[in-house]
Write a protein that binds this DNA or RNA. Structure first.
Lengths: 156, 156
DNA sequence: ACCAACTCGTCAGGGCCTCTGACTAATGTC
DNA sequence: GACATTAGTCAGAGGCCCTGACGAGTTGGT
């Protein structure tokens, strides 16, 4: 209370800090609105829903897309299957593989999350105006590409 | 809805996804460049450096600013103290409290991280141009405020 | 000056999420 | 058919965050 001294790094006003603040806020709002209806789903599970294909995906592919180990992905999938969001079957073309698919409940979650996301974005648009939101989106895509490009240059 | 695309949610093109991509990339680049020189420091520790004041901070204040429990903050501080980035002393004005301060090594880390951040940002500016980076910053601040405001409205 | 209420930080314990290493079973290659 | 590769599992560990309970110190009312 007494030492209200300003933090060190936050003063640096890095681009990362500027990105982090709204990202965290958005996350909290979104998961906050979903946790009542889908209490089994936690943040870690979002990578599964983010990458799973409409016709199902292999565990290995999901793990690769999420940039995590197969074991970790299996842990997440196990939880979601136990709670009825996914089901696993033998892959029809590869006896080693499993095919992970959304159940009806899983699809319902994805749709609810998407709707909540759209609603949040509408609130933002009401504050900022559609034009500025569009501009922000465009700049974020450009930023991502710029980072990808300069990473390549650094590696090459 | 029944497309052949590899992902479901990523298609939704949410603002969160647009924010996440460059944020993650930035994080990876930044921590990647630091881990060789400061292998003891992991991502979880960043909240300590982010909030610690130039004259030190109390554990309780750091925990509150990081929005975590005092126990969790103590865990992080313990690690950083063990590796020489922080030191703890009795608080001169409150016998219950400790004062957590950066050591010289800790300050070196903060400065190195800030420099790496500036360098990354320069690379981005080289791609996008200074004007667009400034515009992006401004929009990110506006977005954060918009989210804060609409959260208030929802709560009130 | 006292005592109750509060606050600071710690100890103990647990859960979630991710990792590494070792393994089996199925597939692909020669 | 022999061998390397790939899909996924089992076992174990560590990192990071939580809750609950606690002793020590501070604060405010009387």
């Amino acid at each position: 209370m007494e030492t209200d001294s300003p933090s060190i790094t936050e003063l640096a006003d890095t681009l990362g800090a500027r990105l982090r603040a709204p990202y965290r806020r958005l996350q909290r709002r979104l998961y906050g609105s979903l946790e009542l209806r889908f209490p089994d789903i936690r943040r870690a599970h979002s990578v599964v829903f983010r990458h799973i294909g409409p016709d199902g995906s292999r565990l290995t592919d999901l793990a690769a897309q999420a940039e995590m180990t197969k074991q970790s992905m299996a842990y997440l999938i196990g939880h979601l299957e136990a709670h009825g969001y996914l089901h696993q079957t033998n892959h029809p073309e590869d006896g080693r593989a499993t095919l992970v698919k959304l159940t009806a409940k899983g699809r319902r979650f994805v749709e609810t999350a998407a709707a909540a996301s759209r609603e949040l974005e509408a609130e933002v648009a009401a504050e900022l105006g559609k034009a500025r939101v569009a501009q922000l989106r465009e700049l974020l895509v450009a930023l991502d590409q710029a980072l990808a490009k300069s990473a390549e240059d650094a590696a090459g």
